[in-house]
Design a protein around this nucleic acid. Structure first.
Lengths: 140, 140
DNA sequence: CTACATGCAAACCGTTTGCACCCTA
DNA sequence: TAGGGTGCAAACGGTTTGCATGTAG
């Protein structure tokens, strides 16, 4: 597992450092996107916040992870780049962010490209609501 | 036109001030979402930036306008609430934001609600690409 | 006349940066 | 041992806030 990370870094011309391995380990094992502070709090070794930001930026540039700025969420979150296009389900109560795989928009995108004459290359879909827990609490 | 704005403010229990009318006038006559600074630069009268932010917040709370934070765009933009659900087409070149009416996601949302057991009440779709102008320039 | 609005300046806060030191390859 | 990586502290920049003053109703 650690060796996978080392290879991932090597492939991308990044040096292996304990900080990078620790950050990569956390983000690769987390299903939900995490903020820099959340990563900090999950680290077993001490890493400076600015190092975390720099590491995340670097990895995002190498397409190892993705950086997300979500409307209604006050800080950037970062997520390991797994296979497959995905969208996000955001709980307005607890702010939990869940990735959703599969996408209903491929043909829509094509038709939009024709209509608008834009060269479309990407889209981001964020779905908002209340998770079962928060929804239950709202009722009370 | 000005009277429409006055009524809109009255309806929502907001006092009529020259600042509010001027801001409302600009945002209601603009098809693209605007940032606070852009509104400032379009104003004919002098209004303090913090007043602009406060006015926009107030109007957003009253549902007169919407506040948008878009991934890849560094500041908040605000838009007059017209009829109809809409999405946004963002040019990665010039950062221009265009609203798109019509939505292909109604049935998808329903199915997702069943699958996830979330109470879904909203979604935001941002489509990224290059506008005809920027696309042409990219080729050169 | 009073409660809400505004202007101004300072604070906020997540993120970025400059620089000296460190350590991987 | 050279060049990238890290820690620390300070800067950044869009947005927010406290407070004194202004003004709509």
């Amino acid at each position: 597992m650690i060796n996978q990370y080392k290879e991932k870094l090597n492939e991308n011309g990044l040096k292996n450092t304990p900080q990078r391995l620790a950050i990569l380990d956390i983000i690769a094992n987390e299903k939900q996107p995490l903020s820099a502070e959340e990563i900090l709090s999950k680290l077993n070794i001490s890493v400076n916040l600015s190092t975390i930001y720099r590491t995340l930026d670097t990895m995002a540039q190498k397409n190892i992870i993705s950086k997300l700025e979500i409307d209604g969420v006050d800080r950037c979150v970062y997520e390991y780049n797994r296979e497959g296009h995905r969208h996000y389900l955001i709980c307005k109560g607890c702010k939990k962010i869940v990735a959703i795989y599969g996408c209903p928009l491929a043909t829509y995108e094509k038709s939009l490209e024709q209509k608008t004459e834009y060269k479309i290359d990407e889209h981001k879909l964020f779905i908002y609501g209340y998770c079962p827990d928060c929804n239950r609490n709202k009722q009370n």
